[in-house]
């Protein structure tokens, strides 16, 4: 708890030094996350259904579109069903946005902040940056952009990972499984690593850089094989964002999962004009795990779900 307090103090100073404004946005939201890989926690209020936010992204983008300038927020977010050694359904997220930052600028921002915070107890060696394509080639010897399903299944087999029973997996799901079960554990524990340019199919809310193949302007930061942060060069195109929402909601319907209302407030904000910016979400509890050198997220939480 003392470490958490020290990190919070230090990160607030880091943002203040750079003129980034601290904001608070509501935890309760009338629109749920549409991402098919996130499960909302719902809440009842005056007979109306709300959701506890899975991230403050949408609300913070509304502020950016309204002219807030650079902003950051530290808040609790909620994701149902995510419980494990590195997951707790309620966790602390640090999210920030910088106007005019490219994806590279934003990686530099993240490196500067995490280096400052880790300096409290566990100084970091220089960070490495590698593309998603190089990462997958290096660790599992597959090209994530061209490998067909059987090739990915082979790569899993080679590494002793049982392919799931039940419905066959799609390419992206196989890549996710490879990343989580083979690549992450094989990463050098002492080497902070940025992975950038994910497949366009895994863009989420990032811009897509046209090319062959097109790639998502998205990065993730890994400490000790554990994902710490995810950043986007933010998508500002209303039409494209609306299309992605519709596709995600259709997919949820297809899978028989809950389909929340479309986040029209965010679309309206994009329509009004989201400035060119990059944003990052950082799992603060995981950063604390790294700084404190512990393996269980429950070790850094004041009270985990079992004791909540």
């Amino acid at each position: 708890m003392r470490l958490r307090a020290a990190v919070l103090r230090r990160l607030r100073r880091w943002f203040e030094d750079r003129g980034v404004l601290e904001v608070e946005t509501p935890v309760l939201s009338s629109a749920g996350a549409s991402d098919p890989h996130l499960e909302n926690v719902s809440a009842q209020l005056d007979g109306r259904a709300y959701f506890l936010h899975t991230s403050p992204e949408s609300a913070m983008k509304r502020l950016l579109a309204g002219g807030s300038g650079d902003i950051f927020q530290v808040c609790h977010v909620f994701r149902a069903g995510e419980l494990g050694q590195k997951h707790n359904p309620e966790f602390t997220m640090l999210e920030w946005y910088r106007l005019g930052h490219s994806l590279e600028d934003m990686m530099t921002d993240v490196e500067s902040l995490t280096r400052d915070l880790c300096g409290i107890r566990r100084p970091l060696v220089p960070f490495r940056r590698t593309s998603y394509q190089d990462l997958m080639r290096q660790f599992v010897d597959v090209d994530p952009f061209t490998a067909a399903v059987p090739e990915l299944v082979d790569a899993l087999d080679r590494n002793g990972i049982a392919s799931p029973a039940g419905s066959p997996l799609e390419r992206d799901e196989l890549l996710d499984l490879l990343l989580a079960t083979v690549v992450e554990p094989a990463m050098d524990p002492a080497q902070p690593l940025f992975v950038y340019h994910f497949p366009a199919s895994q863009a989420a809310l990032a811009r897509i850089l046209p090319g062959d193949p097109p790639v998502a302007e998205r990065f993730e930061l890994f400490f000790g094989g554990m994902e710490i942060a995810n950043g986007f060069h933010e998508l500002t195109d209303t039409v494209e964002q609306g299309r992605r929402f519709d596709r995600e909601l259709a997919r949820r319907a297809e899978e028989g999962s809950f389909v929340p209302a479309r986040d029209d407030a965010l679309l309206a904000a994009l329509e009004a004009g989201l400035p060119d910016c990059s944003g990052v979400a950082l799992g603060l509890d995981r950063l604390l795990m790294y700084i404190a050198d512990v393996d269980e997220i429950s070790d850094v939480l004041t009270f985990d779900l079992a004791r909540a």
Partner: peptide, 25 residues
């Protein structure tokens, strides 16, 4: 669970009839 992707449960299970242990995803 990778950052933005599909989550998985990896389980080690024991067959109660044969005692054999296998891994499944």
């Amino acid at each position: 669970k990778p950052g933005k992707g599909q989550a998985f449960n990896r389980v080690r299970i024991r067959n109660l009839k044969t005692g054999r242990v296998v891994d499944k995803t």
